[in-house]
Amino acid sequence: MPFTAPSSLLDLPPFPADGYADIADRMGALLGTRNDVLLVQGEAIIALEAVASSLAQPGLGAINIITSPYGGLFGGWLRRGGAYVTDVVAEAGLPVTVEAVKSALDARPEAKLLAIVHAESASGIINPLEEIVALTKARGVVTVVDAVASFGGHALDVDGLGVDLVVTGPQKSLAGSAGLSVIGISPKAWALGSHEAAPVNSVLSLLDHKRLWLETGRGVLPGMPSALEFWALRAALERFEAEGLDAAIARHHLAAEATRAGVRALGLTPWVDAAQASDLVTTVRLPDGLTVGQVLQAADAAGLSGGVGPVAEHLVRLNHTGQNAQRDVVRANIAALGRAVAGDIEAGLVAVDGVYGIAA
C-alpha cells in the first residue's frame, strides 16, 4: 500500500467545548443581535428548511417573498407544514417592491409571518429590507430573513431593524466553509415556533437546539460536531474580525462600484442600477447575439458564471464576494468579460482603477 503523506486537514484536535458558545456570541455580534444564536451543522439550505419546518403549523398565515428559486423553496416548506401561504412574486430577476409587500400585508391582516431573502446571488439584486421590516413591525408580524448572501457584505443590524429570525452562513463574505450555518432567533420567533406540530428529535428541529444546547448551558453541541468545520469557521471569523465589519462592507461596496464602472466602460449594461444591486455579485445583461455559454467559454475565468432562475439565460455574473472583493480580482473579471464580448479591455481596466483612486 502506498504511503499517504500527512495532511493538516486530518487528525485534528477536538474543538473545545467552550468554543461553540464563543463562536455563537461572535456571530451574534457581527449580526447585531443579542437574541439566541444557534449553530447548525450543514449548508444554509438545511438551516432554512429547519426554520420553515419549525415555524410552520396548520392554519398559520404566512407571506413569502419570491425573488429567486430559494424563496420558492421556503414557501413550499411552509405549505408542507400546513401553513396558508401567500407568495409575493417579484418581476423576474428584480427586487420586490415595497408596494407589493404592503398590498399583501393589507390583504392578509391575519398573517403572522413574512419571509424574505435580503440579497440574491442568483441575480445580483438586493431587496428593500429596511422598508419591509418597518411594515412587518407595525403589524406585529414575525420577519424571517435569509441573509446568507448579504451577511458581512451589506449592513445588517438585526436588532436595530427588528428582524425576528435570521439565517446566514460563513461561505460568502466571510470566505469560510459552507458546512455550517447560523440562526439568530428572537423570543417572539421562539413563541411562534413553540407549538404541538413543531418537529422534535429531527435535524429540522429548532426546539431540539433549544432543549439540548441552549437550556443545557451551551456546552458541546448535540450529536457529533465536525471539528474541521468549526476550526474553519473560527479561522474565518478571526480573519474577518481582524479586518472589521465596517471595513469589509466598504471593501465589498468598492469592488461592486469598480465592477459596474468597468462593465459600463466595456459598453455593457449592469442588470440593475446600483440602488438595487448586491455588492457581492454584479450581474450584466448579455449583448444581443451572445449566449451565456458563449460568453463563459470565451471568458474562461473562474470569476464569471451564469445566473440562476428564470433570467439565467439573459445575464452573466461577476463574483466579488469575500476574498474576491479585491482590485486585482475585479480587474481580472473585467478583462475576462472584455475578451468574451470583444470590448475595450483597456477602457474597462482604467474605469476600475479610477474607482480605486489609481490614475491611468
Rank of each mutant, 00 (worst) to 15 (best):
N319K: 14
L245H: 07
A149F: 15
S121E: 13
D22W: 09
Y84C: 11
S68M: 11
P13E: 09
S305K: 12
K102E: 14
G262C: 01
D288R: 14
R264E: 14
I45E: 12
I116S: 02
V292K: 11
R218Q: 14
A360F: 06
V88M: 01
D18R: 13
G179S: 13
V355W: 04
K172Q: 14
T33Q: 00
P6C: 04
S173N: 15
W213C: 04
R260V: 04
H195P: 10
S177D: 13
A29W: 09
K172C: 11
P13Y: 08
A332L: 07
L38S: 02
A107I: 07
P199V: 12
V295P: 00
G71Y: 03
L60P: 07
E99G: 12
G152V: 06
G184T: 11
R211H: 09
T97S: 15
A347C: 00
L78F: 05
G338P: 10
G219E: 14
D18S: 13
V330Y: 05
A107E: 13
R264P: 00
G219A: 14
L174A: 06
G289T: 02
E91P: 04
V316Q: 02
E99I: 08
E91I: 09
L268R: 01
H253F: 05
A90K: 03
V166F: 01
P199H: 02
L254K: 12
G217D: 11
A175D: 15
L296R: 02
V40R: 02
D159S: 05
A261E: 02
D87L: 10
L10E: 12
V158W: 09
E229N: 15
A342G: 12
L212S: 05
A332T: 09
G244R: 10
L180G: 10
V311L: 07
A360H: 10
H195L: 11
A138R: 11
D300L: 04
S8W: 07
G124I: 03
I249K: 13
A29Q: 14
L135Y: 05
E91F: 08
M1G: 15
H252M: 02
G19V: 00
G262T: 00
A247D: 11
E215Y: 02
Q171W: 08
G153P: 11
L39Y: 03
V352M: 02
G140C: 07
R211Y: 09
N333E: 09
V40D: 03
V295I: 15
P109K: 01
